[in-house]
Write a protein that binds this DNA or RNA. Structure first.
Lengths: 151, 151
DNA sequence: GTATACATTGACGCTTGCGTCAAGGTTACT
DNA sequence: AGTAACCTTGACGCAAGCGTCAATGTATAC
């Protein structure tokens, strides 16, 4: 009940917050996807609020973009590197270095956006196909004179 | 070399066309996802051109929408039912029946579109997040005076 | 001190989605 | 007839992604 520090969570707390199981969290740790912020003297894992966001990121990469957990790990490592870039950026006054660090971050964002865009395009094509199909169905419904009057 | 019938394919031919393996095709058959059009006297599976489209459909549902093969089977069965609806539609002059059949087809298309829409929304949110991140990076690049002059 | 609910580690189990292998048959070409 | 490339079925193997269990430790409340 220390008010000035972020409340730390045990594994069950985080699991409930993120809607996964403790087993999943231990598994992700073993894969290098998500490390606890600390361990208590009894060996309990302690997580901070950042873990919740990281799990959401993992979920996105896994479920929305279809990456395996191995691939997710690589992507997160790149993103971690960008975070480190950000810290180093703030820690230097070298404009050239700063620009380099920013370009790296931009390149990573570009690559990810490309993947998202490709997936969006495939889904959009599916949506268009279904919409066309529905247009044809509507037309046929009109010829039966059934339209919206029923149901 | 029969010009008037669609060329039938053996399993290796279809596998190459659809970029899967013969093993995958036998597996899909065992799951009820894709049946051969016929079998030759020697037991060879024969597929027709429709199989190519069906495999593309399976790929979409699996890779773009993230369904398991069991789920894909259920969805394809619904779509097959709609095909049957279409055949029955053409085979009746009962306007009321026709309207019913069309409404069933519309309902299925609605459900699928809903799924696609949900996935699109998630990916769009990811894309927006990344675009925002890139906007911030660009702003920082401007303060270093590095912009586009390099690279 | 006790009870309860949580935690720890290690390991086996299960499902999914195939890859690969063995043993043999079929087809088409030479 | 021989050969090569394809095919068949059945079955084991593998990786991924956890679920579940056993045996035990930890923390908190009573």
């Amino acid at each position: 009940m220390s008010n000035e520090v972020a409340e730390e969570m045990r594994i069950g707390d985080l699991a409930r917050r993120a809607r996964v199981t403790p087993r999943t969290l231990r598994y992700y740790e073993s894969l290098g996807l998500l490390q606890p912020a600390a361990r208590r003297s009894g060996g309990f894992r302690l997580y901070d609020e950042q873990a919740v966001g990281r799990l959401e990121r993992i979920r996105q990469l896994k479920e929305l973009l279809g990456f395996s957990l191995g691939e997710v790990r690589q992507i997160l490592r790149s993103e971690d590197a960008v975070q480190e870039i950000r810290a180093r950026y703030l820690g230097t006054e070298d404009a050239g270095l700063r620009a380099d660090l920013l370009r790296q971050a931009m390149a990573l964002a570009d690559a990810q956006r490309e993947l998202v865009r490709r997936k969006l395009a495939g889904l959009q094509a599916m949506d268009d196909e279904i919409a066309e199909r529905q247009g044809r169905i509507r037309q046929l419904l009109r010829t039966t004179g059934a339209d919206e009057r029923q149901g």
